[in-house]
């Protein structure tokens, strides 16, 4: 993703909360064992989003926080973190 001076890039990581079963991660971890990598004792899967926001927008932090908690992550099962670039 390219950004211009007029935009800011933000990466949002969404992870399952600790304790929430991640069957996908468990399956990947089992596959690693079968592939000959028994040292990886746990895998947790997640997702990330690249967002580009108008650099002149007001309240950028508040807006990012809102879209994360209202849409990108479900606070019942997930937590998010934000990385600004």
């Amino acid at each position: 993703m390219t950004t211009t001076a007029k935009t800011k890039k933000v990466i949002v990581y969404v992870r399952l909360k600790d304790g929430v079963l991640d069957p996908q991660g468990v399956t990947i971890q089992k596959a690693l064992g079968q592939m000959g990598y028994p040292d990886f004792v746990s895998v947790r899967s997640g997702k990330f989003f690249e967002l580009e926001i108008d650099a002149g927008a007001s309240d950028i932090d508040r807006q990012i926080n809102e879209v994360c908690s209202k849409l990108l992550a479900n606070p019942v099962i997930e937590r998010f973190s934000v990385e600004k670039i």
Partner: peptide, 17 residues
């Protein structure tokens, strides 16, 4: 309904995938 907050909780991936 759970996503919209009308019912509590969430539906996760089936435990056996």
């Amino acid at each position: 309904l759970t996503e919209s907050g009308l019912l509590p909780g969430a539906l996760l991936r089936n435990n056996h995938l």
